[in-house]
Design a protein around this nucleic acid. Structure first.
Length: 562
RNA sequence: CGGGGCGUGGCGCAGCCUGGUAGCGCGCCUGCUUUGGGAGCAGGAGGUCCCCGGUUCGAAUCCGGGCGCCCCGACCA
């Protein structure tokens, strides 16, 4: 029974002044959520209905994939996190209880679930297993933002898989990936499965489920058949026309010209005819490495880390000592390991590079002849790049879920092993799989909203039909509306009945703001024509159904709504 | 962590520079009218002006400190 006269739906005419993201503005205006503090949000009844509908879809598909739901505590002993080496994470919220015991509020549950696995999984016969929960996650975010999109506390569906070996993990991973595909399809949002970075904690593979939308914090690179987070994406660069190679490098005077822009402008060369030098120091062994990319390209820190392992940018003093004045450094004569990005065409002509001398560059330089190098893909892709001849698109997106092959990252420090068929102790191979229902809701708002407000996919809408009555209390229209309300509920519809004593404009505006997929209107016209007016929120197409079997017609119409 | 901005009834804002009875719109309450696109008239309720300290006869306003919130960037296991 949901009568708007009794339901808490505090709609607002104006968005909060500080709201920027569309979903932030609309979710507050539509009365779905309210802010408590930075990155801390209350879900009001209508918003929570949507959240829980997403949760239910996830639950059904996880169960369908053989996963088992459980619940683990949010508050955990710090000791578990010290054991896996994650206690130092800045985003991890630490606290002490009255006895000064060190605790954390968990950001994920690998430590706890692996502790249980250690105790409860003993034999190869106990594997594989997938466990999951819907539980609050806490993150001490440096900067919460965009309403419900990046918060300090949020509900996450987190699942953990346990397998005998890498091969079995791969199978589980794909099985859960298929469940994820179904979940996001069923939720009615647009999504991509994007190749992703495994992060600095290592791992054996990861995909991110990305919902393209204006408020997206991530960029995904998209071509038919290829989607990747821009952090790890690879593509073919646009070719550049290079000056001819010289028989040997020649000095060019470039006084004070330390940037690619300055040099290319002064020498009338395309930026792509320059090679940019990026000196780094590896975390392992303090080795000095010179990374070279085309002048019009950018280093991708993530891809470089994947190629080299951990590193830091070299300090100016180190650069001066090892190479030459910053701004004029280059690979020719450099006594060190040189990594050349794959985007640099090696036999296409002569490049311009820093000469390792003040105010000087070198012309006509040929990689391989003038310096030795190893190739690696370390640049960030950019618009204009192609994959298989097709131009890439770069789209902003929010991460609504991820799947991750952990391998033995947690089973090893936690000692999670099993006995195989030969009685030999083996490490359990794990995976982790997250989904943020709040982000699904926000992504849906972002993707389908129009000038009037939200337009929910029917699968996660707070209600199926928004019944608007225009009659005054005690009127004949009211009587008809009440009857239709009962009939719709009897037909299994989730009905929001706007029985408030308010004007039509206000009721219609609120209905459009809230974005329930169908709106049925009963008013004077209904009495005159014997027809109930029906409007599909997405596209706002109107139609009429006969009063006599209105409930059945509306239930049928709902089936064909997006 | 760097840069910028903002804290005044539920929401959106003005007032602050130049100190002197705290205002506007929306919302809310009561009554009457109105009822197919945020309606009208009349009456009314509601504010520690973020907090602490200072200057002053007097502080929303000036000064100092703190807290909170937002945006851009960095970060985001």
């Amino acid at each position: 029974m949901t009568r708007l006269s009794e339901f808490l739906l505090p709609t607002e005419r104006e968005a909060p002044a500080d709201a920027e993201a569309l979903s932030h503005k609309l979710m507050v205006r539509a009365g779905l959520v309210r802010q408590v503090g930075a990155g801390l949000w209350t879900w009001l009844p209508a918003g929570w209905r949507t959240h829980q509908r997403a949760v239910q879809i996830i639950r059904e598909e996880m169960d369908g994939a053989g996963a088992q739901e459980m619940l683990m505590p949010l508050m955990q002993p710090a000791e578990l996190w010290q054991r896996t080496g994650r206690y130092g994470i800045d985003e991890l919220l630490k606290l002490r209880d009255r006895r000064e015991a060190e605790l954390v509020l968990a950001m994920t549950h690998e430590e706890v679930v692996t502790t249980h696995a250690t105790q409860l999984i003993r034999s190869y016969r106990d594997l594989p297993k997938v466990l999951y929960q819907f539980q609050v996650k806490e993150r001490d975010e440096p900067r919460p933002r965009a309403g419900v999109l990046r918060t300090r506390e949020f509900v996450m569906k987190d699942a953990y898989s346990f397998d005998r070996d890498a091969e079995s993990l791969n199978a589980t991973y794909e099985q859960l990936g298929a469940a994820y595909d179904r979940i996001f399809d069923r939720c009615g949002i647009e999504w991509y499965r994007a190749k992703a970075d495994v992060g600095s904690m290592g791992g054996h593979g990861s995909d991110e489920y990305m919902a393209p939308c204006g408020a997206g914090e991530n960029d995904v690179v998209v071509t038919p058949g290829y989607v990747a987070n821009i952090e790890v994406a690879s593509a073919d660069p646009q070719p550049v026309v290079l000056p001819a190679a010289l028989t040997e490098p020649q000095s060019v005077s470039t006084p004070g010209l330390t940037t690619v822009e300055d040099v290319s402008a002064a020498l009338e060369l395309p930026a792509g005819a320059l090679l940019k030098a990026y000196p780094v120091v590896l975390s392992a062994g303090d080795e000095f490495v010179l990374v070279m990319v085309r002048g019009d390209h950018r280093i991708s820190e993530v891809k470089l880390r994947i190629a080299l392992g951990g590193f830091r940018a070299a300090e100016p003093a180190e650069i001066e000592r090892r190479l030459g004045p910053p701004g004029f450094i280059g690979p020719v004569g450099a006594q060190m390991r040189i990594v050349l990005d794959r985007g640099v065409a090696v036999d296409a002509g002569g490049y311009l590079v820093g000469a390792n001398r003040p105010d000087t560059h070198l012309h006509g330089v040929v990689p391989g002849r003038d310096f030795n190098f190893e190739l690696a893909d370390v640049r960030e892709v950019m618009l204009g790049d192609t994959i298989g001849g097709t131009a890439i698109r770069i789209e902003a997106a929010i991460e609504v879920g991820n799947i991750f092959k952990l391998g033995t990252r947690y089973s090893e420090p936690m000692g999670a092993t099993y006995l195989d068929q030969n009685g030999v102790s083996q490490l359990i191979w794990m995976g982790s799989y997250g989904i943020g229902p709040a982000r699904i809701a926000a992504a849906a708002v972002e993707q389908f909203a129009d000038q009037q407000g939200i337009s929910w996919p029917r699968a996660i809408a707070p209600f199926d039909v928004h019944l608007v009555t225009l009659g005054k209390p005690q009127s004949e229209e009211r009587e008809l509306s009440e009857r239709l309300y009962r009939e719709l509920e009897a037909a299994g519809m989730r009905v929001l009945y706007d029985d408030r004593d308010a004007g039509p404009g206000e009721k219609f505006a609120d209905a459009e703001l809230l974005g329930v997929p169908l709106r049925a209107t009963v008013g004077r016209r209904t009495l005159a024509s014997g027809e109930v007016e029906l409007q599909i929120r997405r596209g706002q197409q109107g139609s009429s159904v006969a009063v006599a079997d209105a409930a059945a017609s509306i239930a049928a119409a709902w089936q064909s709504v997006p």
